Amino acid sequence: MLEALASFALYFATAIVLLFVFQAVYMAVTPHRETELIKGGNVAAATAYIGALIGFVLPLASALANSVSLVDFAIWGVIAGVVQVLTWVVVRTFFYKNISESIVAGTLAPALKLAGVSVSVGILNAASMTY
């Protein structure tokens, strides 16, 4: 039992570290400041950010459930983060160049679209990690 608890703690702690690293990288990549916008009550920023978090955590959970080792889990967790950051880059580059400005302005529709794309890509990413 103690061995299982130690394994749980190690995997859970790794997942939390990956989550914090993802958040830091994601916020560094986006030109707007999610934390400030969300503290200021910007629903569009919160919506887009939550979509990115869910889009990351879904494949992270899949990797956690399907990994064969802690290193395997960590590698797939990093891949999940890269895919989610690339989702932001692709949406901004090819589909909605002014999405950051729209989010800063509090325009909800583009933020909802970004959140939906982020979650959708996360679901596909998670399903792809069931090997």
Rank of each mutant, 00 (worst) to 15 (best):
S128H: 01
T87R: 04
A127L: 15
I99T: 11
P110R: 03
N42F: 02
L114H: 01
V104A: 12
T35G: 12
K39Y: 14
V25Y: 02
G77N: 07
R92I: 00
V89C: 00
L114V: 08
D72L: 05
A28Q: 13
N125D: 13
T87L: 00
K97R: 11
Q84W: 03
N42I: 00
G41C: 11
V117R: 01
I50D: 03
Y49G: 01
V25S: 04
V91R: 00
T47A: 13
G116R: 08
M129L: 12
L114Q: 06
N66I: 00
G41T: 03
V57P: 00
N66T: 09
I99K: 02
D72F: 04
F56I: 06
R33S: 10
A109N: 07
M1N: 08
F12R: 07
L19E: 11
L5N: 10
N42M: 07
A24S: 14
S7L: 05
I99L: 12
A127E: 10
N125F: 01
T93I: 00
V117A: 05
G41V: 09
S7A: 14
I79A: 13
A63P: 04
L10W: 10
P110M: 02
A4V: 09
K113R: 11
I38F: 06
Y26D: 02
V21E: 07
Y26R: 00
L112R: 12
V57T: 13
G122D: 11
K39A: 13
Y26A: 14
L10K: 09
T35I: 08
Y96F: 10
T130M: 12
L108R: 10
E34T: 13
T47G: 05
M1Q: 08
V83C: 02
T107S: 15
T47P: 03
Y131L: 14
I103L: 10
S120D: 02
T87K: 01
A48Y: 01
A74F: 09
S102N: 15
F73H: 05
A109K: 15
S118P: 04
S69N: 06
V78I: 15
L124R: 05
I16K: 06
S120G: 15
V43H: 05
A6Q: 09
I54M: 12
Y11K: 12
Q23G: 10
N125Q: 08
Q23M: 13
I75T: 14
I79K: 08
